[in-house]
């Protein structure tokens, strides 16, 4: 019953997620798609960096920056 990362990712498509980058910035949104490089597309992405926040309609996050949640 172990879930490997690729399984996990296909399971959580469509759900609300938070993506945390190496630089500490977080992006929250609905996970629309993901690929083998861990590139991610979030719908209604919200950037949370400390106290400030900012919203994007759709947002593509390049895989190498992601750390995850």
């Amino acid at each position: 019953m172990s879930t490997d990362p690729s399984h996990f990712l296909s399971n959580i498509i469509g759900s609300s997620v938070t993506v945390k980058l190496h630089n500490g910035v977080k992006y929250a949104g609905v996970l629309q798609s993901i690929d083998g490089f861990m590139n991610v597309v979030l719908q209604n992405g919200t950037e949370v960096a400390g106290e400030s926040s900012r919203t994007y309609g759709d947002v593509f996050i390049r895989g190498n920056n992601g750390m995850y949640e």
């Binding site: 296909s10 498509i13 629309q32 798609s33 993901i34 690929d35 590139n39 991610v40 597309v41 759709d58 593509f60």
Partner: peptide
């Protein structure tokens, strides 16, 4: 799942 991130 035919959609991949680079499609955006």
């Amino acid at each position: 799942q035919s959609q991949e991130p680079l499609d955006l």
